[in-house]
Simulated scan of single mutants.
Amino acid sequence: MNASREELKELFASKVSTLVAGLETWFEQEVEAIDGSVETSAPAGSGGSIIGMRPAIDSKRVLDARAVTKKVLEMDLPPEIIKPGGYDSCADMIADIVPKLEKVFVGDIKVKKRKSEREMEPA
Rank of each mutant, 00 (worst) to 15 (best):
I82M: 04
S49V: 10
W26I: 04
K83W: 11
S116F: 09
D64R: 13
G85W: 05
M93N: 00
L101I: 06
K112H: 10
S59L: 07
E39C: 15
D64V: 14
V104R: 01
V104F: 04
S41G: 09
A123G: 14
S89E: 00
M93R: 00
L11G: 06
P79Q: 08
L8E: 08
K70Q: 08
K70T: 09
M53K: 10
D108K: 04
L11N: 11
G22C: 06
G85K: 04
V104H: 03
W26S: 04
A67S: 12
V16T: 10
I94D: 01
L11S: 11
D58R: 11
R118S: 06
M53A: 15
M53N: 11
L11D: 08
M1V: 14
N2L: 15
G47L: 15
V98N: 00
I81F: 04
Q29G: 15
S116E: 05
E121F: 15
S59P: 09
V111M: 05
I97C: 02
V106S: 00
V98W: 00
K83Y: 08
L8W: 10
K83G: 03
I57E: 00
A65G: 05
K9N: 10
A123D: 14
W26K: 03
L8R: 12
L8Y: 08
D58Q: 10
L63I: 07
D58A: 10
F12S: 01
G45M: 03
A21W: 12
S37Y: 12
E28V: 15
K103M: 05
E6C: 11
M53S: 14
V104W: 02
E74P: 10
P79Y: 09
G22D: 03
S89V: 02
L23S: 02
V111Q: 01
R66A: 12
K113Y: 15
A123V: 14
E10A: 14
E80P: 02
I94R: 00
S37G: 09
L73K: 06
S89I: 02
P122C: 10
S4R: 04
A95K: 01
